[in-house]
């Protein structure tokens, strides 16, 4: 019984939240890794792209809510998602035309692109704050829980409860669908294949008649979609605050690098590695050990390895370890 209780506690506080968080990070890291593979730079504006997409979706959600449209038990934001994606895609195509294209034509060094993306980050951040402000926004509606802790306890008769939020289930489900579509697109369609060819060997792709501007355009559109979905899922699960999205940049980069920059499978694996490490290390293990160990050995303190404020340190340490021992990441990405 104690073992079951420990398992439920672990699932409730570590596995379920980390699965949801990992899916969000994986979607974010996929965007970073795609830009890296095709456009060959680390996009520092990605966090703020996510914030912009989420903001557009929130505005659309509010409009729908005031028009009386709802999605039943599911959050209305899911209905508003296409509008957010369209807005973000347009914004990204616009920034590409105005900012990045110039450097691409000039074949500037990657670090110049990074600095330009820094400027874009500023501007996007400014736009988001200008439109929606800096405060926390809660925009999840519909059913809050799939199973509440109390229901679970009465159902199973265990001491520990397991609560599963609707947003967590939605996050994982949406992530699976999006990743499946993305891989189908990259592997089966003509455009997807030309994207992979361009990423593998630019010159060869150009020789075989692939239009680079088309590849770049599709990349931005896909990235806009991924960033918006990742941002909205994160916002539904927690809440929307522009500054948090900027801070998400670090775990997202860490996830992309751990998996191997430029490798989509790696980005997904990296997202879950970072999420599980972060949640496990900052979670107080007292309860878990209390169930597993005999009473005489039960710990007095919280047995929290690191306080939650240091969650960035976790992604950072993993990042450093990967850079030291395997700079190409788990799934052989590029490390030029």
């Amino acid at each position: 019984m104690d073992f079951l209780n420990a398992l439920v506690a672990l699932a409730n506080f570590v596995i379920v939240p980390a699965l949801a968080y990992g899916s969000q990070l994986a979607l974010g890291a996929l965007g970073v890794t795609l830009i890296y593979g095709i456009l060959r730079f680390s996009n520092f504006a990605h966090g703020d792209t996510m914030a912009f997409g989420t903001m557009a979706t929130i505005l659309a959600t509010w409009a729908m809510q005031s028009a009386g449209i709802s999605f039943g038990v599911l959050p209305t934001a899911l209905l508003a998602l296409p509008i957010g994606i369209a807005a973000t895609g347009l914004l990204l195509l616009g920034t590409d035309r105005l900012v990045y294209k110039f450097y691409r034509v000039k074949k500037a060094k990657p670090v110049i692109f990074v600095i330009a993306s820094l400027g874009v980050m500023f501007v996007m951040n400014g736009i988001v704050r200008f439109i929606i402000g800096v405060d926390d926004q809660q925009f999840a509606d519909g059913e809050r829980f799939l199973i509440t802790a109390r229901d679970f306890r009465t159902m199973t008769g265990l001491e520990e409860g397991l609560a599963i939020k609707t947003t967590q289930v939605i996050t994982v489900a949406v992530a699976i669908i999006v990743v499946a579509i993305l891989f189908w697109f990259l592997n089966k369609t003509r455009t997807g294949k030309s994207m992979r060819a361009y990423s593998d060997n630019e010159d060869l792709a150009l020789l075989s008649g692939i239009n680079p501007e088309r590849v770049v355009m599709y990349t931005w559109l896909i990235v806009g979609g991924l960033a918006t979905i990742a941002g909205v899922l994160y916002g539904l699960d927690k809440s929307f605050k522009p500054f948090t999205y900027f801070q998400l940049l670090l775990p997202i980069f860490a996830a992309a690098i751990v998996g191997g920059l430029g490798s989509p499978v790696g980005a997904i694996a990296g997202g879950f590695v970072i999420a599980f490490a972060e949640v496990t290390i900052t979670y107080p293990l007292k309860k878990l050990l209390g169930y597993l160990l005999p009473d005489s050995l039960a710990p007095d303190g919280l047995v929290q390895l690191l306080s939650t404020d240091y969650k960035f340190a976790v992604s950072f340490v993993i990042l450093i370890i990967v850079l030291l021992f395997r700079p190409t990441g788990l799934f052989k990405g590029k490390s030029v």
Binding site: F44, P110, V114, I257, F316, L319, P327
Partner: peptide
């Protein structure tokens, strides 16, 4: 390593 890595690592250390 490549130049972007330094950028990301410094971004991290600042937050920490």
């Amino acid at each position: 390593l490549r130049s972007d890595y330094l950028a990301i690592a410094t971004l991290g250390i600042a937050e920490i």
